[in-house]
């Protein structure tokens, strides 16, 4: 294909009962393989090993390298986990809903989900871009349970709402939620940027020690360990600009005595602060 982008199309044929763990659906794995080799790739359903072709019709052609490979999934794959696991380049487009753990530990490339995404999208990611056009569930860009340091680079953009624990433990990179979020957004954040264009429930930035959180909407219950620093008019962070007046806080003092976490909250939407 001489450097041109090659496309592999996966069409779900059902059989998703117990969730399928499909780490194999990645441009890094598909690159350089024939369609038959791709059909033979192993996926797990519970403890059982299956072939990818038991769940998907496979057509098109893979590129020589991951960067030259695009994977298009034509339909909902809510019950397929780990799509794009550790991918370093190329592109995955899901024309439907995605399951849990999309783009875990990815270091490069691009994932586009036209529908909704499951929990743990972009867990521990290091680079690349994930765009979700619909809503997402919990633990978006959050590190694994029990771990305190997660996502270190890259970008996650959720165009709808997200659930609880957005950006837990991130140390770098950025997460932008256009809609609302649940509780514990930016918990244990230690670097990077988390932006919420809509409203947040409670415990925003809890146990945060570094990094930046911007909330353009209303925070229902403000986190107690933050102290007011300043009022600023308009913000410019990582090439993103935010208009209007913001109250700047530092915290979380409940976590340590000299925290470097910065929390910017819309003045207009939070008159009680």
């Amino acid at each position: 294909m001489c450097g041109m982008e090659s496309k592999v199309v996966l069409t779900p044929i059902g059989n998703f009962d117990i969730p399928v763990e499909a780490e194999a659906i990645s441009p890094d794995v598909f690159a350089g393989k024939s369609l038959n080799e791709i059909r033979e790739l192993t996926v797990l359903q519970g403890p059982q090993k299956h072939k990818l072709s038991e769940f998907f019709e496979v057509s098109g052609e893979a590129g020589e390298t991951s960067v030259e490979t695009t994977i298009v999934i034509e339909g909902d794959v809510d019950r397929v986990k780990l799509i794009g696991y550790k991918m370093s380049g190329g592109k995955i487009v899901i024309n439907g809903n995605a399951g849990m753990h999309v783009g875990d530990e990815m270091s490069g490339g691009e994932i586009l989900v036209r529908g909704d995404a499951g929990s743990w999208t972009g867990m521990d990611m290091k680079g690349g871009t994930i765009v979700i056009e619909g809503n997402a569930k919990d633990h978006i860009g959050c590190t694994y349970r029990g771990k305190w340091r997660g996502m270190s680079g890259g970008m996650i953009h959720i165009k709808g709402d997200a659930g609880n624990n957005v950006g837990g433990g991130i140390t770098g990179g950025s997460i932008v939620i256009d809609g609302n979020v649940g509780a514990f957004c930016g918990i244990k954040q230690n670097g990077g940027l988390t932006v919420v264009r809509g409203d947040a429930k409670r415990a925003v930035g809890a146990e945060m020690s570094a990094g930046t959180i911007v909330v353009e909407g209303h925070i229902e219950w403000f986190t107690p360990g933050f102290e007011f620093v300043d009022e600023v008019d308009g913000l410019e962070i990582n090439g993103m600009s935010f208009e209007g007046a913001f109250l700047k806080f530092r915290g979380d003092y409940a976590e340590k005595s000299n925290p470097k976490g910065e929390l910017y909250v819309s003045k207009e939407k939070n008159p009680e602060l």
Binding site: P47, T143, Y144, R145, G146, K147
Partner: peptide
């Protein structure tokens, strides 16, 4: 119990 993060990447299959 304290360390789920110690477990999820170090596995041995049945």
């Amino acid at each position: 119990i304290m360390r789920p993060e110690d477990h999820y990447q170090w596995v041995r299959a049945k």
